[in-house]
Write a protein that binds this DNA or RNA. Structure first.
Ligand SMILES: [Mn+2]
Ligand SMILES: [Mn+2]
Ligand SMILES: [Zn+2]
Ligand SMILES: [Zn+2]
Lengths: 145, 145
DNA sequence: ATATAATTGAGATTGAGTCGCAATTACATT
DNA sequence: AATGTAATTGCGACTCAATCTCAATTATAT
């Protein structure tokens, strides 16, 4: 059993949620998608694997996958919420160019450590960090002249 | 004329937009709100000042205020977009409780410095940072048991 | 096998945000 | 001051991502 499925199973069990075929399919679909995806995309991919999976189940499963630490909400664009897979040790954040929309991914361990540290004095238990830095990419800076 | 209104006037003029009574009222309402607000809240405050201002005009004016640098989008919580006034030198970020929606503001200079540092190797010129940490506030953690 | 609480798909509903339109208005030009 | 015109307005209808309802089904413990 792949690591992700193991983790999901554990999460479901710990919360008295059931491991259903639909949830397995949706997890698998999520894992197979490279890069960012939204609910619709996840529904499409899930349908390809098993066309009996409903849109409602996809919407219902997304928060479980987030809670289990398998996917994360990354951003909202075009009024849709975007997610992406969390692969072990592959947390990252985003630089977003305000002009061309280019997205640069980066990973910075110090940033993650700092974010956890910030929560402590508030007794706040973090589940997701989202850092988005907006600005201008190299190309768009030179175009500006 | 207050600084904010001057800036808004300049922005509108530069883009061939008109300075209408409605836009003045909405700007004033935005300025008078302390802390975070969403479109509905801004509509309520605007209505108090001038009850002829419509919800549509509020929605249409928000992007202008953002573009003019007078307010900024801070986060999305409980499926509503939140804004707050941009006052010079009051940079901060947010902890957001996934259960009750509570928002804790914090300011961390090290985080700011780190974010700037991160951009350099990408030749990325940052204009805004947005860090949102989602999780559970103290109260909601204990309720969970 | 049985009990039971969780989950499902289908379709209805919600609600933040957008849009179309005819009437109005800001503002530049005479 | 009067005119022209493109921008803006309020209203209400619309969109559509996300949530909810509910009867039927199903995963799991006993
Ligand atoms: Mn990414
Ligand atoms: Mn704030
Ligand atoms: Zn760019
Ligand atoms: Zn809370």
């Amino acid at each position: 059993m792949p690591e992700a499925e193991k983790r999901f199973t554990k999460y479901l069990c710990e919360h008295q949620y059931k491991l259903t075929p639909q949830r397995k399919v949706i997890l698998q679909a999520a894992r197979e998608i490279k890069g960012h995806f939204n609910a619709d995309k996840l529904y499409d991919e899930s349908s390809t694997l098993d066309k009996s999976v409903s849109r409602a189940s996809v919407y219902r499963t997304i928060p479980l996958l987030v809670e289990a630490g398998l996917i994360m909400e990354t951003m909202r664009s075009q009024s849709k919420t975007s997610y992406e897979n969390v692969f072990k040790g592959l947390y990252h954040d985003h630089l977003i160019c305000a002009t061309c929309g280019k997205i640069i991914e980066f990973r910075n361990d110090e940033l993650m450590r700092l974010q956890n540290k910030i929560c402590k004095p508030f007794n706040f238990k973090p589940t997701e960090h989202m850092t988005a830095i907006k600005g201008y990419c190299k190309k768009c800076q030179s175009k500006k002249n």
